[in-house]
Simulated scan of single mutants.
Amino acid sequence: MPTFSIVIPVKPGGAITALESLRRLSSSCRFEILVAEGCRPSQQRNLAVQEAAGEIVFFLDDDSRVAADCLGIIATVMTDPAVGVVGGPSLTPAGDSLLQRLFGGALVSCFGAGGMRNRYRSVGRIRETTEKELILCNLAMRREVFTALNGFDERLYPNEENELLDRVGALGLKLMHVPEMAVERSQRTSIRQFVRQMFSYGRGRGQQTLISRSVSPLSFAPLGLLIYLMSLPFGVVFSPFWLIPLIAYLVLDILFSISAVFSSRELSKMLLLFIFPLLHISNGCGLLYGLCRGRGGGAEVAAMPVVVRRIKTFEQDVW
């Protein structure tokens, strides 16, 4: 069985709730846990991997709650030497608040998150995939592959995993999505936090596009919506037909909100009427900002202190 290095970035002094579920791992795989404290997760993960000794690096967030058999699942999929990366979705816990479940409901909708919605729902079978279905809070990679590619581009956060996964795929290695390998992570607890999260996702996608020079047209749909809305006051002056895209968007907003009510049997899901536009506009603003800001800033990152601590060694059974 392969050995694992579990890497968790955390803010200085932050809580690491992921450790609770890691203590219940049922796998016979040997693993170590490295926690990297700092303020730039992409850099923290890179430095932690430099100290890692496992054959497979398993990236989690500080609040990822893993399945008890996750290491065994990863080891099984990784028996194929052509597989370079294995990942699973991040699910919204049933015990989250109504607002948090609304955020989660928007992210699992094809209207809300498009092709990336499978990052937030457990559906289908094990399959070869792309970066669109994989998420960094639940991602395993061969350490030799990570090292050969010099890890994450530290100019990026978020979206550093998406840029790296594109490079892994370019090597001809398989990226595998495993629905059963799900983690649970609570959604943001307020509208303000959710807006900041969606803005940062957009900003990261914009900067990733400039760095990788690859464009995913569907990912830029929120930016198209934003530009359209900004032009609306001027467009309607010239033609009432300028309102047609807005009407179409509102119809889709209503239809997908109703669909969410029927699929979840929760009348409260009609509030997605307001969450969908919030998600799209926030993400569009982030995309615009990311494209205008440029490729990110690596100079200030180097000055940020990072402390890597080994919470558990391979030999420890109790920790």
Rank of each mutant, 00 (worst) to 15 (best):
S97T: 09
G204W: 01
C39P: 01
L171M: 13
L279P: 01
F103K: 06
P277I: 00
V10K: 01
I247T: 12
P93D: 05
R24F: 10
G115N: 15
R65S: 02
A299D: 15
D166P: 02
L278M: 12
E55S: 05
E131Q: 15
V77P: 06
P93L: 04
M304N: 10
A15V: 01
A302I: 09
L255G: 11
A299W: 14
I258N: 10
Q193C: 09
D153M: 00
D69A: 04
Q197W: 09
P2H: 01
L139W: 08
R143W: 09
G296L: 06
S268W: 11
I275R: 02
L34V: 04
D166W: 14
L156F: 10
G224E: 03
Y201R: 07
G104S: 11
V215S: 10
A68Q: 11
L210Q: 08
L139R: 03
L273G: 10
K312R: 14
P179I: 10
N162F: 11
M198P: 02
L243P: 00
V85R: 01
Y201F: 07
M78E: 07
L288T: 02
L250C: 12
G13V: 04
S21A: 06
V7I: 08
R188A: 13
I227K: 12
G206D: 04
A36I: 00
E160F: 10
L34C: 06
A113S: 15
A68E: 13
S64K: 00
G224N: 12
P240M: 08
P245Q: 14
V123M: 15
D166Y: 14
F199K: 05
L99C: 09
L156C: 07
G115S: 15
N150I: 01
G112R: 07
R295Y: 04
V236H: 14
P305F: 03
D153L: 02
F276D: 12
A170V: 01
Q44W: 00
F274S: 13
R125D: 15
T189H: 12
L279M: 09
P179W: 15
S5E: 01
L210P: 08
S190C: 13
T76L: 11
P41M: 06
R125L: 12
L71N: 08
K269S: 08
L252A: 11
R117I: 03
L34K: 00
E32S: 06
G124N: 14
M304D: 13
N138E: 08
R203E: 07
I126M: 07
G72D: 11
I73W: 07
A52G: 03
R23L: 10
V35M: 01
R196G: 03
A248G: 10
V145A: 06
L223V: 04
F256M: 07
I191V: 15
L98I: 05
I281C: 01
I74N: 03
L156Q: 06
A36H: 03
A75C: 07
G13R: 03
N283M: 06
